[in-house]
Amino acid sequence: MEDLNKKKFSLTSFFLQWEWMLVILFILVNIVNINLSPYYFTFGGLRDATMTFLDKAFIVFPMVLIMILRDIDISVASIVALASVLMGYLYSLGVPMELAVVICLATGALCGFINGLLIVKFKELSAVIVTLSTMIIYRGIAYIILEDQSVGSFPEWFGFFGWGYFYGIPFILIAFVILAVVFSLLLHQTTFGRRIYAIGNNPTATRFSGVQVDKMKLIVFTLAGLMSAVTALFLTSRMGSTRPNVATGYELDVIAMVVLGGISTAGGKGRMLGAVIAVFLIGFLRYGLGLINMPAQVLMIIIGLLLVIAVMVPNLKPKAKAKTKASKSPSHQAAG
């Protein structure tokens, strides 16, 4: 009877988790890479590789929240561009860089807030359509600000975001790990995270349980804008200059990482850890294949295949379960 209050720990279900699959894939990728290139497995090489793929990974955190909410945000790359371009432009006009950085973050948050507001106010529009529109608008504004030029020559301290080390570890890696822990705790240990899962599973029942669904969405989309601006900081710092066409295609890379991380496209399922592993999986894959000059197209095919597996495998498990359940809960299929 005591067992009633204790969750049973099952070894098989522990190892059947998607995250283990990702870890195995991650080890496989590294074994292949080591065999392909003698230059791969050097501390300096791996360390610096993280600098090139981690910038967009900051958007993965809020994207996990958004996709658990059963929504999506495809305007994130445009927010990166707009925030970055505005920051560069203001600096070129003589605004102090410190202030420009703050404005960059504020712009990102504002763009995300606008997305959230539109999604909450116009419920008949899906998040894809809303963020598709703002994706075009935000990128368009970036082009109006800078036309086809680029701005750069930022102060030296600004380079620290992209190129700085802290006790020999890239600053971007430290920032990523800290934020990964923060977002994991937020999602898995707080009422905020629990409510996000609830909304993703059943928004109506969640609202009827006294959760302010609209407010939650607004916060999460604003967070996505803010984190896009963080990406803008790191990206701009690493490149040393910015143009309106920066970060093109980032939204798809980010969504790919989230889906590969095991976050259900139907909402309500998945964990932060999976997405974090997926970031390194794709990043190292890209780095290793880059070392042996594998064409980018081949890389895309490999990532595509991984995604197909990612969306297929979790779908197979519930289906097998559903079959056994069908007897108990009639699904009212039309027989005629």
Partner: peptide
Amino acid sequence: QQQGLILSWGIDKNITLPALA
């Protein structure tokens, strides 16, 4: 099923959803 409960959740989490605060 649509308005009252989250069917894919355990009994425990369903019961406590309104009282998380």
